Simulated assay, not measured.
Amino acid sequence: MTTVQLVDLGPLTQLRAGKLPRRLVQLYVGLWLYGVSLALMVLGDIGLAPWDVLHSGVIRHVPITLGQAVVVFSFIVLLLWIPLREKPGLGTISNALVVGVAADVTLGMFDAPDAMAARIALMVGGIVLCGLATALYIGAQLGRGPRDGLMTGLARRTGLSIRLVRTGIEVTVVVLGLLLGGTLGLGTVAYALTIGPIAQWMMPWFLVTLPGTARVGGIPEPDPELPR
């Protein structure tokens, strides 16, 4: 069975590529659900995704919310795009703003449960929802997230593989997060092992076909850190 390959488009070309109403809805639904998924893992309190280990450590020392930390670090990472000559798109800027807001709104609506079964359910639900949100966001083809652009930019500039660069970034942010008192646990490991396969499985459901897209035998595996 043939499927549609993701395309690498410039910021303006992304907007002119067609099917914009559907893609915009899909983009913002995906970003909002990503923020919700982050909040679910926080409420579960069994470990967070690598970047969120860092965010949770920072808010122990700075009077900001978790969602605000997500937004602040998104823009810090975007500054690192400048020497890497990465080009942000609508999805990039939207990612930097929407995910953190959605996380804070969700955390403000619910209290963390005490029962372990409920906490495990929140962790699992958060990971699955993150995979769905990733497929929605990437499938809209409106630009990379800040952290993903950092990864691809460093890989291009250094000549190292995407996997090696991603691993190096994730290890670095986890170590920094732990030094700051961030939350690391079973959820962190579960996220790292499953988010890629889940997003890969769901991607064909939401990938928007654009003019000029090449037909290939399969969809490339999305990076587990997308769409952050």
Score class of each variant (00 low, 15 high):
residue 188 T to F: 15
residue 127 I to V: 05
residue 89 G to T: 10
residue 133 A to F: 07
residue 136 L to I: 06
residue 55 H to N: 13
residue 15 L to H: 09
residue 11 P to N: 01
residue 150 L to R: 01
residue 190 A to M: 10
residue 177 G to D: 12
residue 218 G to W: 15
residue 202 M to E: 00
residue 161 S to T: 04
residue 143 G to P: 02
residue 30 G to H: 00
residue 40 L to W: 14
residue 5 Q to N: 10
residue 203 M to C: 03
residue 188 T to W: 15
residue 164 L to P: 10
residue 9 L to W: 11
residue 128 V to M: 08
residue 70 V to W: 02
residue 65 T to Y: 05
residue 179 L to G: 15
residue 6 L to S: 00
residue 181 G to S: 07
residue 28 Y to Q: 14
residue 73 F to D: 03
residue 151 M to I: 01
residue 151 M to C: 02
residue 124 V to M: 07
residue 21 P to N: 10
residue 146 P to I: 02
residue 117 A to P: 11
residue 137 Y to Q: 08
residue 113 P to F: 09
residue 112 A to L: 05
residue 104 D to Y: 01
residue 113 P to K: 08
residue 162 I to R: 10
residue 58 V to F: 04
residue 73 F to E: 06
residue 84 L to P: 10
residue 149 G to K: 08
residue 155 A to T: 02
residue 211 P to E: 06
residue 46 I to W: 11
residue 130 C to D: 11
residue 108 G to Y: 06
residue 109 M to I: 03
residue 27 L to A: 07
residue 199 A to Q: 04
residue 16 R to E: 00
residue 32 W to E: 03
residue 19 K to C: 01
residue 37 S to Q: 08
residue 131 G to F: 00
residue 35 G to Q: 08
residue 41 M to S: 06
residue 188 T to L: 09
residue 152 T to N: 01
residue 174 V to H: 15
residue 50 P to V: 11
residue 134 T to N: 06
residue 89 G to F: 02
residue 150 L to W: 02
residue 219 I to D: 00
residue 158 T to Q: 01
residue 100 G to A: 05
